Amino acid sequence: MTDAKEERVPQRATGRRHLAVAWACVAFIAAMAGVTYASVPLYAMFCSLTGFGGSTRVGQAAPASSIEREMTISFDANVAPGLPWAFAPSQREMTVKVGATSLAHFTAKNRASAETHGNATYNVSPPQAGAYFVKMQCFCFDEQVLAPGETMDMPVVFYVDPAIEKDPDLKTLSTITLSYTFFPAKAPSERAALEKAADKPVVRAN
């Protein structure tokens, strides 16, 4: 009898340890899932602030002065499938002074017979230049809405940060390409309907 009791005690202790390990694993997985979910907006914010991965920076004011170095800025425009827009830069390229505020224009036209909504994503190449390409005004900051057949001028105000002069990897860089892609976006009424449907409890038949 004594031997049987002594055998059961270690088994119970081992079971509790296994259960504790299992719960620790579940907690770790849940924590990692939470970090992954939170990292999406944090990563987007990080890219906007630093220009990481070819994302441009966002600025409120231009530098006090420019420098003599000049850059050629090339413009690229794309439309994703599902959005019936014609979208193109008004100029294929322009030469700017580093540190000087510059203005470029894009044009978008809705070729559909109904109102359409679009959101633009953007990046620059080479990717390292993103840390020095600063946008002060851009249509990509907000969702764009075009009426049937409407054509819209879309300006971009930007400058190249003079700090690029101190980057040894970009010392000989002469051209930066700014690229945009418009994707379809749902109208506010459609989004509201989807959100309402998502919040509606599911009724299951018995």
Rank of each mutant, 00 (worst) to 15 (best):
A4C: 00
E6I: 12
R8L: 15
Q11E: 14
A13I: 14
T14I: 05
R17M: 10
A20P: 01
A20Q: 05
A20W: 07
V21R: 11
W23D: 00
C25I: 14
C25N: 02
V26H: 05
F28I: 11
A31G: 10
G34F: 09
G34E: 11
A38L: 09
V40W: 15
V40F: 11
Y43E: 08
Y43P: 06
L49T: 06
G54T: 14
T56G: 05
R57I: 04
V58Y: 03
A62S: 04
P63E: 02
P63F: 03
A64R: 10
S65Q: 15
R69W: 04
I73F: 00
S74L: 11
N78V: 11
L83M: 06
L83A: 04
A86E: 12
M94I: 12
V96E: 01
V98F: 00
G99Y: 01
L103H: 11
A104W: 07
A108K: 11
K109Y: 06
K109P: 11
R111A: 08
A114Y: 08
V124P: 02
S125A: 13
S125D: 10
P126G: 09
Q128I: 08
G130C: 09
F133N: 03
K135R: 14
M136Y: 04
Q137Y: 03
F141M: 07
F141K: 07
E143V: 05
E143Y: 02
L146F: 07
D153M: 08
D153V: 12
M154Q: 03
V157M: 03
Y159C: 05
D161V: 06
I164W: 04
E165T: 14
D167E: 12
P168T: 08
K171W: 00
L173I: 01
T175N: 09
I176D: 04
T177N: 07
T177H: 10
T177I: 08
L178E: 15
K186M: 04
E190I: 05
K196P: 00
A197I: 07
A197N: 07
A198E: 13
V203Y: 13
